[in-house]
């Protein structure tokens, strides 16, 4: 009996992610959920501009590549024209929380019945490690060489907290992928997001605290440690909104 297999919804191709990058884990989790729900043939995914830009080659469902930050608007067009399909976006923090903030907030407040997988790695990975809207105070990046100074560069955005204030947001949870327990919880949250969409309950977002060993200048193990000791305290894990739990 096979106890560990490649999910069907994950294409059998080699991924380009750096060694130790958590993008791969999250891709796998999304695909496991798609497999378990048996919805690959009825799912349309939208990938962003960022390190997951070519994820259309990895996800086995029909895929659309969006312009930088516009994935929630593209997803809106897809969902409105094909309301019977599952529609998800997969976006980094620069994509979702900087250039695409407007599209993100309005998709949420409209209660757009889509699921967003949001990768928060506190950095712009693809362009070589510049400050992201989520970069922590003091964090050194290519464009904050002396550490992010909030007096100059402002403060990090907490997306789940922000979006949970919007009536249209049905489900918002922040998870991490630094340990088996957290990875299991992350998968549950992704599943929950797709279930919310299935039940036509509105906008769901799963924020995944992730690592970028390459641009953090750390080993994969050190990266996991940083995620635990620096990111989780600033970005507490948990369910920020769940209308299915409200009575």
């Amino acid at each position: 009996m096979a106890i560990y297999q490649k999910p069907h919804a994950l294409e059998d191709v080699s991924m380009h992610f750096c060694p130790g990058c958590t993008h791969g884990i999250v891709h796998r989790l999304v695909c496991e959920v798609i497999d378990e729900m048996g919805i690959e043939g009825d799912t349309i995914g939208i990938c962003p501009v960022g390190c997951s830009v070519v994820s259309y080659d990895y996800f086995g469902c029909d895929m659309i590549e969006a312009a930088h930050g516009r994935a929630p608007a593209v997803a809106t067009g897809v969902k409105r024209s094909r309301p019977d399909k599952f529609v998800f976006t997969y976006q980094g923090d620069g994509d979702l929380a900087a250039i695409g903030t407007c599209e993100t907030v309005h998709a949420a407040t409209r209660g757009e019945n889509i699921t967003i997988i949001f990768i928060n790695n506190t950095i712009y990975g693809m362009t070589g490690g510049q400050m992201a809207p989520t970069t922590l105070p003091g964090q050194v990046t290519q464009t904050t060489p002396f550490g992010r100074d909030p007096k100059v560069a402002g403060y990090p955005v907490r997306i789940c907290e922000m979006l949970s204030t919007l009536t249209g947001t049905a489900y918002a949870e922040r998870v991490a992928v630094d340990s088996p327990a957290h990875i299991n919880a992350a998968k549950k949250a992704i599943r929950k997001g797709f279930e919310v969409q299935k039940n036509e309950q509105g906008f769901s977002i799963i924020e995944v605290l992730s690592t970028c060993p390459t641009n953090w200048g750390m080993t994969p193990l050190e990266s996991m440690e940083r995620l635990r000791t620096e990111m989780i305290p600033y970005y507490p894990l948990g369910v920020y909104k769940d209308i299915t739990a409200e009575k």
């Binding site: 349309i44 939208i46 659309i64 067009g77 897809v78 407007c102 907030v105």
Partner: peptide
Amino acid sequence: GVFLQAESEIAAINMVYGAAAT
């Protein structure tokens, strides 16, 4: 049919892009 007032012209054309893609 679908009518939706978008949050900006940028969003509107990207919604068209999504719909046309389907």
